Simulated scan of single mutants.
Amino acid sequence: MTENPPYKQLRRPTTDRVVAGVASGLGRYFNVDPVLVRVVFAVATVLTAGVAALAYPVMWFLMPEEPADAPAWPAPPPTGS
C-alpha cells in the first residue's frame, strides 16, 4: 500500500513570523517568499485606501497556529519504497 504525503495546510508558523505569521503562512502555502506576500499585501493596502488591511486581522483570527511538533517546512520528501 502506498502512503499518501500529507496535504498542505494553511497555518500560521510559530518560528517565521513578523507580526502574527499570516504572510509567512500564506507564503509557505503558495510556495512563494513571505517577503513577496508582505509587499503585495502592502501595495494592495495602499491601492485600496486601507480596505485590504482589514483582511489581515480576519486572517489572523481564522488561520490556525501551527502545532509546536509540526515538521519543518517544506516537509522532506518521503524516503524509500
Rank of each mutant, 00 (worst) to 15 (best):
G50M: 06
A53N: 09
L10T: 03
M63Y: 12
G27R: 08
G27W: 07
V35H: 04
P5C: 03
V46N: 04
V46S: 04
P71D: 07
V39P: 06
V43L: 15
L54E: 01
R17F: 14
A72P: 13
V32G: 08
T2D: 13
V37C: 05
L47Y: 02
K8Y: 09
P5W: 01
A44E: 04
E3R: 10
Y29S: 09
V37R: 05
S24H: 12
P71G: 03
P5Q: 11
V39D: 09
P71K: 04
Y7S: 14
V43S: 00
P34Q: 07
A55K: 03
L54W: 00
A70S: 14
A75G: 07
L10Y: 08
G80Q: 04
N4L: 15
A52Q: 02
A75I: 09
A42M: 08
S24N: 13
P77L: 10
V51Q: 09
L62E: 06
N31H: 15
V39R: 06
Y29C: 02
G25T: 03
P34N: 09
F61T: 03
A53C: 01
V58G: 08
P78R: 12
L26K: 06
G25S: 01
V35S: 11
P34D: 10
A72G: 12
V40N: 01
T79W: 00
F61R: 12
R38P: 07
Y56G: 00
F30D: 03
A49Y: 04
E3V: 14
S24F: 02
R12S: 00
V37T: 13
V40P: 00
P34H: 02
L47P: 04
V37F: 05
Y7F: 10
D69R: 05
M1C: 11
R28G: 09
F61K: 14
T15C: 08
T48Q: 03
P5A: 07
P57L: 07
W73P: 04
T15V: 14
G25Q: 13
M63V: 09
D69A: 12
P34C: 12
M59Y: 14
A52L: 00
V22S: 00
V35A: 13
T79P: 07
T48V: 10
M1V: 10
V37A: 09
L62Q: 10
N4A: 15
V18D: 11
A53V: 02
F61G: 01
N4I: 02
A75S: 11
A49M: 14
T79S: 15
L26P: 01
V43E: 02
P71F: 03
P76M: 01
A52S: 12
P76S: 13
L26Y: 10
A55T: 08
G25C: 05
A52G: 02
P64I: 07
L47F: 12
R38G: 12
R38M: 05
P71A: 08
A42P: 01
P74D: 03
V39Y: 00
G80E: 06
Y56P: 06
R12F: 07
N4E: 14
F61S: 11
D16F: 08
V43M: 10
L10V: 04
V46G: 08
K8T: 11
P13S: 11
F30Y: 15
V51W: 09
Y29Q: 06
A70E: 04
A72D: 15
W60G: 03
E65D: 11
P5M: 00
